[in-house]
């Protein structure tokens, strides 16, 4: 397996609080990995370190052989990193089609690919609609299409199902998984919906109090007593 993304001993503190503490892991081509943990475990900070919103105090992030630890977000993107946001971030003054066109132009690809891209995320026929007129689940799909426009090597999904109801959650995860498989994109996602986590992740990373406390297959994680303890908060769990 080709390693696409590697985090080496990442550390980040704010004031006296260590938010991410010695976190290391790898992501292989076309692999789907979930990052979970209780609130305040350091998932968001870890995510921000990867996407470039924050720089690690120490440690490295290697994307397909390139050290991107200190690069600005837009430079990381050009190195092959894509991301979505927890609250879907789209260009609110634009139509669906313009949103995707913008992403394609920014990626140096022809806007002619927009139809194909929209079809891939299940939005065929909605191109002319203003993005703000869409249902939230569709807005998330627009965002996913934008993140995929550059055909990233690694795609970070920050709570892909947040804000969506019932069956829509599964559908968007299916879309993401199918696209990752097709393009060989490695997926790293944070998620609260355990159905989504256990249904779609090849591997699960668990964080607690800034540390990575477990890294394993869904079955291994299910049986891990440390993980049970942090999730249930029972000393005897």
């Amino acid at each position: 397996m080709t390693v696409m993304l590697e985090a080496r001993a990442l550390r980040k503190s704010f004031g006296g609080l260590v938010a991410v503490d010695d976190v290391s892991f790898t992501l292989s081509r076309a692999e789907r990995v979930a990052l979970i943990g209780p609130n305040g475990a350091g998932k968001s900070t870890c995510f921000n370190l990867l996407s470039g919103e924050a720089a690690p105090d120490t440690g490295q992030i290697i994307l397909d052989g390139t050290d991107i630890s200190r690069l600005a977000p837009h430079v990381r993107q050009r190195a092959g990193l894509g991301r979505t946001f927890q609250i879907a971030a789209v260009f609110r003054s634009m139509t669906v089609s313009e949103n995707v066109t913008t992403a394609l132009i920014a990626a140096g690809r022809s806007p002619d690919n927009r139809r194909a891209l929209l079809t891939e995320v299940g939005l065929a026929g909605l191109g002319a609609r203003l993005v703000t007129d869409l249902a939230y689940g569709d807005i998330k799909r627009v965002e996913m299409a934008m993140a995929l426009a550059a055909r990233p090597k690694v795609l970070l999904l920050d709570e892909p199902t947040a804000g969506m109801a019932g069956p829509e959650r599964t559908r968007i995860m299916e879309t993401a998984a199918a696209l990752a498989d097709k393009n060989g994109t490695a997926l790293l996602f944070t998620e609260h919906d355990m159905d989504a986590v256990f249904g779609f992740a090849d591997r699960i990373l668990v964080m607690d109090q800034g540390r990575l406390i477990a890294d394993g297959t869904p079955d291994e994680i299910r049986e891990n007593t440390e993980v049970k303890r942090v999730y249930l908060g029972d000393p005897d769990a």
Binding site: V90, M94, A106
Partner: peptide
């Protein structure tokens, strides 16, 4: 045109624009 589209992108949502590789 294209220039305006990318500029509007930075206005609408700068973090999103950066994440798409746009030098805001």
């Amino acid at each position: 045109g294209r220039f305006g589209l990318l500029l509007r992108a930075t206005r609408d949502n700068a973090p999103r624009a950066r994440a798409l590789g746009i030098n805001v």
